[in-house]
Design a protein around this nucleic acid. Structure first.
Lengths: 194, 194
DNA sequence: CAATATTTAAACCGATCGGTATAAACTATC
DNA sequence: GATAGTTTATACCGATCGGTTTAAATATTG
């Protein structure tokens, strides 16, 4: 056996991810990708298959390494109220820190969803369903611990928190003011305040 | 004076609008546009200037003929509670009726906003600010009429309603279930329930 | 009909699109 | 060092991109 592939698939995918995340599928060209990923066109096609396959791989990797990882992190916070506060705070902080205003790759893709193939659509749907389930669990745990009102309908409030999060991600791409974002965050947290 | 232009600029723009609305800027080609608008390439460039100018014109026209017109319509409803109910109902109804799942042209564009020129960005920002102001007025009027709780912070609740609306528009593109959309609508209306 | 202006179809432009092929340079194992 | 597989650079593919140009066909006014 003579040689192993010299570049890490996940590392290369991560660079592709950032491009697709920032610019979307259509506006990202293969030339962009090879330049940013630092690998040759031939290697890219050999390793990933094509633009669409690479996009799908990047989306799956984002869901695994960013979305799921972030949610896991916040779910480990013992106080659900603190978990929600930190989560929404981090979304707003993202907005100031990320000069590219990339927002959320999944949310961005969900807007292009009607023009993607079913596989991509399913990844987006599952990811969003996962985020909603996360919010429902947080609400239920908060109720069990007595830090959230017992009377809340956890599923309903979970949907509402998902909605607030998505709106923040959308508006953080540039169409809104920082003050407006904080208003929305405050309203989200007020949903579960006693 | 020999002749007037034979096609209505607004009618042609409306057809372009539907394309951009459904597919986004990048994914819509000049060939798509000339075919759908039913006018020749030369005429299109002569009358509109180019793809970007046409996009801007379509976006302005959408804001005028769809967004503002719709909001005006709902604002004319004397009971603010009914106005909100009808508005959110119509968003959900859009989702079932429109097989293309176009969502909202302004919201769709706001997601691509980082890659559009400042003029386009401003149209999106102003439109969203206008929608927020609409919600604030509705809330204030509802409070004055005693159908909404007096204790609400109208600006905060206005932001929250805007957020719910945006989330509905995003999720109606296909990433969510009909039941989930209704959950979100219910939560939005509960914001102002006594 | 004559004059004027618009629309159309079509060829054309250079650039770029996603994707492929090739051959040389490289790096590992044996 | 020979061998085998990977990488690179590069040229190439047909198709399409946004945009321009040209000339003929068309429609409106005087």
């Amino acid at each position: 056996m003579p040689w192993e592939k010299s570049f890490e698939l996940d590392t290369a995918t991560e660079k592709a991810m950032t491009l697709f995340w920032s610019k979307g599928y259509e506006a990202t060209s293969m030339a962009d990708l090879t330049k940013t990923m630092g690998i040759n066109k031939g290697s890219l096609y050999n390793a990933f298959g094509g633009k669409n396959d690479l996009f799908k791989r990047a989306l799956v990797q984002y869901d695994r390494d960013v979305t799921k990882r972030t949610l896991d992190m916040f779910e480990k916070i013992e106080n659900p109220k603190e978990a929600l506060e930190s989560l929404f705070e981090s979304i707003i902080k993202d907005c100031t820190n990320d000069t590219d205003h990339k927002g959320c790759f999944i949310v961005n893709t969900s807007l292009e969803t009607p023009h993607h193939n079913p596989e991509i659509q399913k990844i987006v749907q599952d990811s969003i369903a996962g985020t909603e389930a996360f919010f429902v669990r947080i609400v239920e745990r908060g109720q069990a611990l007595g830090v959230f009102p017992k009377g809340l309908n956890a599923k309903q409030v979970g949907s509402a928190l998902l909605a607030y999060m998505i709106a923040l991600r959308v508006l953080s791409r540039g169409a809104y003011t920082q003050a407006g974002l904080k208003n929305i965050r405050d309203q989200a947290l007020q949903l579960v305040s006693i």
